[in-house]
Structure formats: structure tokens, C-alpha cells
Write a protein that binds this DNA or RNA. Structure first.
Lengths: 97, 97
DNA sequence: ATTTTTAACTTTGAAACACAAAGTCCTTTT
DNA sequence: AAAAGGACTTTGTGTTTCAAAGTTAAAAAT
């Protein structure tokens, strides 16, 4: 089975798959946009985000925009690399044998 | 997010992804081959298989080959269809936005 | 004729995960 | 002063994952 062992458990959840695929093409995405784009609840997004952060697959930036706090996310180099591997695994799996 | 909502929870596990992708290109695959190809334990394969069977995504055939019992699996039409939708979702997700 | 092996499970149990709802905290708008 | 917004954390419940061990029935080996 080509690719099967390249699959990363961290990306098996559709939510984390969504987060990473957004962060692969967008450099910084804020909390609210992420939540709305994926249609998640606050708690749900927060927990998936924190698990990706713990793995150092994404980084979190907190700042004030105007007077409001804003949290944004970006994929780290490691995150992009691991996600690419996962995608490659998927593609091989689906094309292969 | 293109594709995100086309993702099927049933295929989020790498094991079930593996099973389905094998059954998409091979008509009937037996228990032992499936287990070895994916490197799974007995119990693990059995449980994933039974969850896919419950959803009617795969069908199970039991017969004797020579003197030995043999269980084989194939994807149903529904299974192939749903899996295709999932794959399409994945592709859109990964290419899109 | 026993013992061992093979095939295919089922059961068990512990850990991880998913997710909504509710609560928190701090700030800003009204 | 009250309400609302942003970003969480906590809680609780239900589901999933997976290996290990146990089960059954037949076949092969001794």
C-alpha cells in the first residue's frame, strides 16, 4: 500500500484537515474567519487549534487591531512539511494499487 | 471552503481510507490479504470492516477455498459512490481557496 | 488421537477524540 | 450601567481507536 504509512494521525480529523489546507495557501488567518469559513463553534475550533499548536504545526499571533484583540494563525514550516507529506500519502493511496 | 462539507466522517480514519482505496480498484480482497497489506491486527481490521459493513459501504462474502474458510470484501455501489464524493471533497479542499 | 495452527472473529479495557453548551474574562460600544 | 464582541476554558457526554487476550471451528502436523 503506497502512501498508507505516510498518513499523519494529526490530520485525520476533517476539522484539522480544513485548518491546515486553509493555512497552506493563506499566510495569516484570524480566529473569526477560520471559524466562519469552516462553520465551527468556538470551543471546537479552539481545541483543534491548540492540538495543532502543541505539535508545532501552526503558530499563533495575538495582537490588537484597532481596539479589538485579534488572534491569527499561520502554518509553521514543520506544519507545511508534514501536511505535504500527508497529502502526498493520500494521493499515492488513492492512485496506487 | 470548497469540498469541506463533502468529507465523510466514515472515511476520516486512515484504516478505513486504506480499506476503501483498496476496494476501489480490487474487486474482492480477502481478510488475510487486507490485514497484511495494511499491517493491521485482527481485531482492528474486524472492527473497521464491520463499521463499513453497517453503513453498507462494503459487502462481505464467506466461502470455503479448498478446505479453508475465507472471508472477502468488496465495495458496494453506495460505498464507491460515497468514497468518490469524499475523494472529490479532499481534492477540492486541497486545491481550492 | 492429540496437539498445533490457521482463519476469523468477539470481547475487554484504557486512552484519545469530538463537540456542543455553558461559563469566563476583558474590552468596547451603546 | 448594560449589552455585545472576541477568544477562550471547562464540563460533560458520547464515540472511536487499538492492542491484547479470549473464542470457535476446522485442518494440518505429529
Amino acid at each position: 500500500m503506497q502512501g498508507f504509512n505516510q498518513l499523519n494521525k494529526a490530520f485525520e480529523s476533517r476539522v484539522r484537515l480544513g485548518i491546515m489546507s486553509i493555512l497552506l495557501v493563506n499566510d495569516w488567518v484570524n480566529y473569526t474567519d477560520m471559524k466562519d469559513t469552516l462553520g465551527l463553534t468556538d470551543g471546537n475550533l479552539a481545541s483543534h487549534v491548540s492540538s495543532l499548536e502543541k505539535l508545532e504545526y501552526i503558530q499563533v499571533r495575538k495582537e490588537f487591531v484597532g481596539k479589538k484583540p485579534q488572534t491569527s494563525y499561520a502554518a509553521t514550516q514543520l506544519g507545511k512539511l508534514e501536511f505535504q507529506k500527508h497529502i502526498d500519502g493520500l494521493e499515492r493511496l488513492l492512485k496506487g494499487s
